[in-house]
């Protein structure tokens, strides 16, 4: 592990020059119900893909597939060079997934939750603790870092979940409505944490068409 950088927003250093995403006819159905139609996309490292579409169009399904949480039913998908679903195991720990439900234990504090995630990701603990402190400070949560998550407001939970999502310096960010529950001030705080900088690519699911498109290099309209 190289020395920790002071800036918690620094993205990872990997850049093998391959596309972050390469999807060809990717689809998913639950029994007879089609949850995601055939989707094709190619996203280079450092780019942002905005995923738009009405409710039930499959935006969250697509994100879960890309995170390796859901098997695709058909088509080809390569995420960070790993073929899905066969090589999902190689993808583990390399993506940052922010779902529409926070992945935080309500009875643990933000700090305990992040330390738990760090241990699952086998991060070096002393370095991880420093980074957790920096991240929490960056999103303005250091004062509530030791309260139980259950006691926090929805916006605070979202900020902590964003810290959780970027804690392991993912090469690809999969973000489902990262702005939800956040006011303008908080949005500006989290923006550098989840922007597509350097080689870090991201997939951004949003209802807010204008804002998503303003930040995107590519767009994908599901429907």
């Amino acid at each position: 592990m190289e020395a920790a950088t002071q800036d918690p927003t620094t993205p990872p250093e990997t850049s093998p020059g391959q596309p972050a995403l390469a999807l060809e006819g990717l689809s998913r159905d639950f029994g007879d119900r089609v949850a995601l139609g055939p989707v094709s996309a190619e996203l280079a490292a450092g780019q942002t893909l905005a995923v738009l579409g009405r409710n039930g169009a499959g935006k969250s399904t697509l994100l879960r597939i890309l995170a390796g949480l859901l098997r695709p039913s058909g088509g080809e998908a390569r995420v960070l060079g790993c073929r899905l679903p066969g090589e999902t195991w190689r993808l583990r720990g390399r993506v940052g997934y922010l779902g529409h439900r926070p992945l935080l234990y309500r009875d643990l504090s933000p700090r305990e939750n992040l330390v738990f995630t760090a241990r699952l990701h086998k991060l070096e603990l002393a370095e991880a603790e420093r980074r957790i402190g920096e991240l929490l400070a960056h999103v303005g949560m250091e004062r509530r870092a030791n309260s139980r998550v259950a006691e926090l407001s929805a916006g605070m939970v979202q900020r902590v979940d964003i810290c959780r999502c970027v804690l392991n310096r993912p090469e690809l960010l999969l973000l489902d409505e990262p702005d939800s529950h956040l006011d303008q001030e908080a949005r500006e705080l989290i923006e550098p944490l989840i922007s597509a900088t350097g080689t870090r690519a991201r997939v951004l699911v949003s209802h807010d068409r204008e804002r998503a498109l303003a930040a995107a290099d590519l767009m994908l309209e599901l429907g």
């Binding site: 139609g37 055939p38 498109l213 290099d217 590519l218 767009m219 994908l220």
Partner: peptide, 16 residues
């Protein structure tokens, strides 16, 4: 009822 959804393909975002 089973009409498959139209294939979707990523395109370049208008802003860019």
């Amino acid at each position: 009822e089973d009409r498959p959804p139209a294939p979707a393909r990523a395109t370049i975002a208008p802003a860019h």
